[in-house]
């Protein structure tokens, strides 16, 4: 992961947009029946300066990494600032403590969305089961595809877009570089 210079502009003429990692943790490698690329195709036209200041870079192998070696996985998943975790990845596998520790390690601007696609009657039980890993302020719950689309668009457009807060993006990036260095 490249450390950003404090005066990095992202915009043209630099033509070096911020590469925004999106990490998906899901058995089916999909979100509400769609793959992440097709969801991105729907929302990116609405993101200001897309491909000029920011480019989304999705990865679907979050769960495989966690199942393989949760400690090593942090070196990769921390590079993404938007995590999309299907709730079963936390409740089905014995990864609750690992997710808790990984989420607690994320810097403030990383956003963790836990996707719940179960019937509404089960939501309370699922939230209760997830409770132990929801202390972090960065953790949100997403219960439908429109909410997911909206959350992703808002995050990419407002929170992670250098056009809206260049210094914050540089700070987040360099913070993550330090976290990964500390794990190497």
């Amino acid at each position: 992961m490249e450390e950003y210079a404090e005066d990095r502009k992202f915009e043209p003429p630099d033509k070096k947009p911020h590469n925004e990692g999106i990490c998906l943790f899901s058995d089916s490698k999909s979100c509400y029946g769609d793959d992440i690329e097709s969801i991105l195709k729907e929302i990116t036209p609405k993101i200001s300066g897309y491909e000029e200041t920011i480019v989304a870079d999705p990865h679907g192998e979050g769960l495989d990494l966690m199942l393989d070696d949760p400690v090593e996985a942090e070196k990769t998943i921390l590079k993404s600032s938007l995590w999309l975790i299907h709730y079963k990845c936390i409740t089905k596998y014995d990864l609750k403590d690992n997710f808790r520790s990984a989420i607690n390690a994320t810097p403030p601007r990383t956003q963790v969305c836990i996707l719940i696609d179960a019937p509404e009657t089960e939501h309370d039980d699922i939230e209760a089961e997830l409770d132990e890993i929801t202390d972090s302020k960065n953790v949100y719950t997403v219960k439908s595809k429109p909410v997911l689309r909206n959350s992703m668009r808002q995050y990419l457009d407002m929170s992670a877009n250098p056009k809206r807060g260049r210094e914050e993006v540089i700070k987040w990036n360099n913070n993550v570089c330090d976290l990964i260095d500390a794990r190497s």
């Binding site: 309370d124 209760a128 409770d131 929801t134 953790v139 949100y140 997403v142 959350s151």
Partner: peptide, 16 residues
């Protein structure tokens, strides 16, 4: 912090 009101300003926060 969340228990004393430092909640994210979002509709997607956990009900609990």
């Amino acid at each position: 912090k969340k228990m004393v009101g430092d909640l994210p300003d979002s509709s997607t926060r956990f009900d609990v």
